[in-house]
Each structure stands twice: as C-alpha cells, then as structure tokens.
Amino acid sequence: MRCFALLSVLLLLSLPASFASAGLLLSYESGVAGAVGQAGAADPTSQGWSVNTAGSAPDYSFGQDSGMGGWRITDGTSRDLYFYQCDLTSSQASLMQSQDWAANWTVGVNADAVGRPGIGTVNDYYSAVPGRQNNNVLWIEVANEYLYVLSY
C-alpha cells in the first residue's frame, strides 16, 4: 500500500511536466471592460501585433481606441485594408498542428464606423448600409495544415 501511495505522490509531482506544452500561444487584451464609455483600450502593436495599413485613405482606414470597450478597426473604403497580424513561430505552429487548441475572441460590430475631427462619427454602416460590413475577419493559418477564415 505504501508503494501505491508513494507512486501516486511521484506521479502527481510529475503532472506539471506532462502539461508543460499547454498554455497561451498568443493574445490581445484591450484591458478595458466591454461596455460603452470604457476608454483606454490597448493598441495591439504594444502587444506584439504588427499592423498592415496598405491603402491611401488613412482618414477612413484606421485602428483606434473605440471608447466603447475595445480596439476599433475600420476600413471605410472599398480599396484599402486595415488589419493586425502575428506570425506564428515554428514551435507555435507545431503545437497548433499536434495539439488541441481553442481560439476565444470578443467582438462587436460598429454602426458608426467613421469618425474624424471636426466631422464626428457617421452612422452609415450597420443601420443605414449594412452591406458595408463585409470586411471583418479572424484568420488562423498554419502552413500545409489548415486555414480558417471567420468573417462577418
């Protein structure tokens, strides 16, 4: 019986090693509660994300603190884009091939997509022209394995 108890203790002590590969791969945390009036969302570039701003209309394609509980990404053009990207390391990609993983995200769609100094916000996206909301995506890609494009 003592052998069983000793073995159990030893195996319990070894459990952390067996879970060593589990954990966070990458993340963005706005740092604010998801609610109207919550300003101060963190810039994703401060958390290791690179921004891609290919385009010529920065007034209409931008990222900013929404003041509504998160980081707002807007592309108000039909020619530009604006997204954040994190390249996976080879070890991260390997883990995402060999292990189970979960992607969790919290997002809302904006009605007043475009706002500029002196002009204010323009409520011309969700309510007035919902068809303009067709360029929002979460994209998860591992080479030679899978590509998931969740868009809305």
């Binding site: 990458l26 706005s30 990222g63 990404i73 884009l81 997204f83 997002v107 360029n135 929002n136 890609e141």
Partner: peptide
Amino acid sequence: NRVVWGASSSAGQGSTTWNQLA
C-alpha cells in the same frame, strides 16, 4: 503561419470593436 484580425480585404468595408483575443 499567422493569425490575422481586422479588415483584411482591399475590396470590402467594415468596422468592428475587439475586446480580446486569445
């Protein structure tokens, strides 16, 4: 090997607010 979020296409429009991603 990458993860992308935002407005990724040059052909469309959109505006979203992201609270967190992990």
